[in-house]
Design a protein around this nucleic acid. Structure first.
Lengths: 331, 331
DNA sequence: TGCTTCTAGGTTACCGGTAACGTAAAACAA
DNA sequence: TTGTTTTACGTTACCGGTAACCTAGAAGCA
């Protein structure tokens, strides 16, 4: 039913190998032979079997695995898009997985994916289980760690520093005269990158002489509701803040909604700052003060680094993709 | 370097086949043999080669392909999440691709993915090129079409009717006394599903005796900016609307921002309605009137239908997953 | 003319699993 | 005790492509 190389070969009166050469656009055959083979291939509706090709030859491995913390995050949607566009153009297929910010989940996913002998992997974050490290080392395939930069990547890294993001926002708030800053976060235990932003902010505020007043860490997903209720909780504990830094923009917008509901004037009574740079943040009646993350660029850069490595081209081990603090009307 | 079945077999003093049986948890070996094999396998750091397994046996194909219109859409992020969770639990790997609402792109993607002999495919939408249809027919693998329901699916379908969504919103607007309704859309040529909502709305309004006044179709991506400027354009042509239905929630929120900027009171001066049910829509100071789409459920249902089919269990060909019109404060 | 090189192929072995079938010994039944 | 079934394996062939190597004839060259 399904034609394979042998069927084409038989019909064309040549050998399997010649058909393989023709279909892969190699050399060592006449124009006449090529035309005949191509004709018959399309006539038989030949669909190549990449499983067989990849199995028989390392060169033909064109699967790339990518693991993100959450598929429902708007930011990672853009990263995925960047990766997919860059890879798709080059004939690679993208296998994805989500790890819920858990290193153990990540390891489990990698264990599955590695058995498909992918050409490379893209992981999110710099923290991995020892099992993961060992597995990747043993598999010896190219790996790009994105999102949170590390100077000692497993293989390659593309991203920025979450600590610096937090510190930069702290400096911005201080420069605007804010002195009593609070923080509302989410995924307290699992999201180490959000934690890094908090640390960066906390340290920089302390350095500036106006330490962080209080932080409310929720355990929920970092969405609008979490921002709304997180701010409510923070203020109920101690109602003396002149600015609040949020885990991300969605939560910050939730916080804005809470302020509106309670009649708190932003930025006069309280400043609100987010992180991530979602499109919604810039079109609100009051544009949100936030850090814009070049999501698509990171995805593109990661894919390109991976492909370069696969082609044996020289690759920069660590690629810094700068974020941009965009002062809005809210802080 | 990398151990395979044969290495384990040699070390354990048994045959390759016995090792295969043990590792797959079959039967036909003693407890003693199993323990020895398991021990040696973990000792050697054995990583199975699914490429070989899938190549040698149809049963071992555990790749599932999924094609979405855009990876950057918040809604599809949730669908992907639903699919990924359901499939991941069962040991399937998800290969994704985006087609930019283009049937030709979809065909190109399918052509690539089919060569990996996936166990099944999940496609978005009911419209496909003849080439796609032929390809899928020839490959004879399970296919689930999601998002826009059709009574004649290629194989299986999970979703709802976009025409009905539009019609339902039209009835809602009429019931609230709206008589001069406009529409602001995006991706004019390519997004047939948005087009279907427009058609449904247009027809129902006409049936109700108050036909659609005007529609502004942008060619941009359906985001906040597009909503903002789309509404501006619509109103600049003819400033006589008492409600505007948007392509989706992001655009509707952009429209709300425009109203706020121009001092238009919502819903008094003008009603605003969206579609999709993004979380942001429900936490705005004025909750957006919209149609909530059960994204995660659709993903989950699609994955489950696919797996059921793969296991040879009886499957419902068409699964209707109802949307829910949620009247907010804006229309 | 004799030698070399090139062209257009063909042959063979192999990648690492799995299905299908075969078989000796042990357990069991009559 | 003898025939039958079960258990616990082993053997063989095969999936479909590719790398590496081989070869006959043609073309080029001195």
């Amino acid at each position: 039913m399904k034609a394979n190389l042998e069927d084409i070969a038989r019909a064309a009166g040549v050998s399997k190998m010649t058909v393989s050469r023709v279909l892969r656009g190699g050399s060592g055959f006449s124009d006449q032979t090529r035309e005949k083979v191509m004709d018959i291939a399309s006539q038989l509706g030949y669909v190549p079997n990449r499983l067989a090709a990849a199995f028989g030859s390392v060169q033909a491995e064109t699967l790339v695995g990518m693991c993100v913390p959450r598929l429902t995050s708007g930011l990672f949607g853009h990263v995925l898009d960047g990766v997919d566009r860059a890879l798709g153009r080059l004939g690679y297929q993208l296998i994805i997985g989500a790890n819920d910010h858990s290193m153990t989940e990540e390891e489990a996913w990698i264990r599955q994916v590695v058995s498909w002998r992918p050409a490379g992997l893209i992981l999110s974050g710099r923290n991995h289980t020892p099992g993961t490290i060992g597995l990747l080392h043993a598999a010896s395939i190219p790996v790009v760690e994105i999102w949170d930069l590390t100077t000692r990547p497993i293989d390659m890294a593309v991203g920025f520093s979450h600590v610096d993001c937090g510190a930069e926002m702290a400096r911005h708030l201080l420069s605007r005269g804010r002195r009593k800053v609070g923080y509302v976060g989410a995924l307290a235990r699992s999201d180490v990158m959000g934690q890094a932003r908090l640390e960066g902010c906390r340290d920089e505020l302390a350095r500036g002489g106006h330490p962080l007043v209080d932080a409310e860490m929720l355990h929920d997903a970092p969405g609008f509701y979490a921002g709304y209720y997180g701010l409510e909780t923070l203020l109920s504990r101690k109602n003396d803040f002149d600015a609040v830094y949020f885990h991300n923009d969605e939560m910050a917008i939730g916080g804005l909604a809470f302020c509106q509901a309670r009649g708190l004037r932003v930025p006069d009574d309280i400043g609100i700052a987010g992180w991530g740079g979602m499109e919604a943040a810039s079109i609100l009646e009051k544009r949100l003060t936030t850090t814009v993350v070049p999501t698509t660029s990171i995805g593109k850069a990661a894919a390109e680094a991976l492909v370069a490595k696969l082609k044996g081209e020289p690759v920069q081990t660590v690629t810094f993709v700068p974020t941009r603090l965009v002062p809005g009307d809210t802080a």
